[in-house]
Design a protein around this nucleic acid. Sequence first.
DNA 1: CACAGTTCGTTTGTCTGACTAACGTTAGTG
DNA 2: CACTAACGTTAGTCAGACAAACGAACTGTG
Lengths: 165, 165
Amino acid sequence: MSSSEPDTAPPTAPRMDGRTGAARLRSLPTRLLSLAATHSDRLVNEGLAAADARKWHYAVLATLMESGPASQAELSRRTGIYRSDLVSVINELTDRGLVERAPDPADRRRNVITMTERGRARFARLDELLTELEDEVLAPLGPAERDQLAQLLTRIVDHHAHRDG
Amino acid sequence: MSSSEPDTAPPTAPRMDGRTGAARLRSLPTRLLSLAATHSDRLVNEGLAAADARKWHYAVLATLMESGPASQAELSRRTGIYRSDLVSVINELTDRGLVERAPDPADRRRNVITMTERGRARFARLDELLTELEDEVLAPLGPAERDQLAQLLTRIVDHHAHRDG
DNA sequence: CACAGTTCGTTTGTCTGACTAACGTTAGTG
DNA sequence: CACTAACGTTAGTCAGACAAACGAACTGTG
């Protein structure tokens, strides 16, 4: 128990380290992921809230920016926002005059969401703001490390995205 | 990836890349962090739920395992669980016979939470389970990459933990 | 053409996690 | 002894992720 570990390597990889108890707890990647995301989300949400915006606003504007007008269902798919939650997001955006919601004449089930000029300007503002916020979140990391982190996270996200929806 | 990058480094670093719109959206580290944490949390929660447990159960047991009996306030500080939420967690653990809650004779405001024998066995079980779940979450990454990820996340978490609570 | 199945927008509601407020009890401190 | 602070607890807010269902509209098949 004190120190000598048998050198017979266990078959299926041992415990992460020699760690047990709370030390293990502190080093658990899933926990670190949760904590980091919590801090990150808080900073981002506060920053955006101060500018009267939400993450979803940015997500929708960014998508419209790249792909042009789209139906809500399409926006839902591209941004990952549930279509039930998207309703109020579009409401907020129209209230602020950033997008317009109009029935699609070609398919009367759909609404076509179009960006306004104000919307484009707004996106530019939010984009800058978000750059600053990202910088704050990633403050302790250098440029190369930030890239690495992004890459690793992308691999994880892609892997799990393909497995379900 | 291809090869030719202009070596004139811009003064204040430009936009992350040449990315705009949705491509930028998809590469935002804060967003990746959120998504990865969502997937990770879901897997972990489902796995633990199948074993009639929750993340908090593991966190508390791990802390008790390492540091021995503690008051709820102390557990709150060490695990990061709010003391208001800790109440029901301890309830669940006592219901399952994994810990015992007794008033502290030395300070009658406090409860002393002590692990039972069953609790220790339970922790061992959960620890194994969590190892499997971690493995599932980090499936697309190799051992070295997992370490890197853990390190990067630790830096971020520590940085932001010191800044507030 | 008719009918079944699907898609779309929307409303409503659930569940979880992070977090605040307040209250009675108990300990220390000047 | 009066004050303040810590403790456990209850209750409640707020946001995000997600399920269920519904009417309206569209699509494909026979």
